[in-house]
Amino acid sequence: MVAVPKYLFFKGCTIPAKLPHIEKLALDVLPLIGIELEECDTFSCCPDPVQVQGTNHAFWYAAAARNLAIAEEKGMDIMTLCNGCLNTLAVVNHKLKKNPELKKAVNEILKEVGKEFKGTIKVKHLMQVLKEDVGMDKLKTMVKKPLTGLKVAGHPGCHLLSPVEVLEFDNPLDPQIYDKFIEATGAKAIDYITKIDCCGVSLSLSGAKESNDKCISRKLIDAKGSGADAISTGCPFCFTQFDMGQIIAAKTVPQLKETQLPVLYAVELLALAMGRSFEEIGYGNHKIRPALKV
């Protein structure tokens, strides 16, 4: 078993409320590959890097820094399953570490809640932990049931890739690491033209429904047409776009009705590779759930 540091589990808001089976899978399956998690009840919403960041920058920085300070008090690095949480916490962590004046200003605000940001911990997404701590080659040797025959289109998602100088995860214009994860599970990673296309979540959030449907459809039709049996992501917003969003988009984009491309969360794919059945990973909770053979 690889020696991976224990991580403080930043669950975020979306997974516990909307996709609790993902939370459960992470707690059950990640220790099998050496990733131990500690839960924490005093985190708040990260808060999100798309909407809340735009409301009031000082509040966004301070709320994120409060979460970071909690982890610093425990002396533990943070791991999250959500691209949005990663982006907020990693960007704030990075910027406060690099900019003493900003750090001083945020700490002045944090005095209101008796916290201080010191810049002593790291923030990682599960995919970064797999890449940097476990290693994809090592992960491959730990897989119990290689997903041979399953063809998966990887969708790392925008907020896992940028800003690259902060996240240092992969090339945002030609990402490969998520494909390496797919290959480590034994599945075949499918390349497709729209791989780096955004899932379009802001179109959904801002009410641009038809545009949102077009965005989702373009990506899923391309992935399916490229040979994928499923698309996989490590972001709950992207997951929801491709799952529930696919059902909704199919009403306005007839070609999508035939597509029926299921989405598998990163930890679901991992759980399958560790021997869990589709029923055990909560596949029955998915809106799009054609039978898949592995």
């Binding site: 516990p16 409320a17 609790p20 089976h21 939370e23 459960k24 839960e39 009840d41 005093t42 985190f43 708040s44 409301t55 009031n56 000082a58 509040f59 301070a62 709320a63 409060r66 605000i109 944090l110 209101e112 809640v113 916290k115």
Partner: peptide
């Protein structure tokens, strides 16, 4: 059913966010 803890508002967390919002003039 999944064996997970219930989600409920943590009073301390809410109080902290309100203080941060007041300090940063979040409308």
């Amino acid at each position: 059913k999944l064996g997970l803890k219930e989600i409920k508002a943590n009073e301390g967390v809410v109080a902290d966010l309100k203080k941060l919002a007041a300090k940063t003039d979040l409308k």
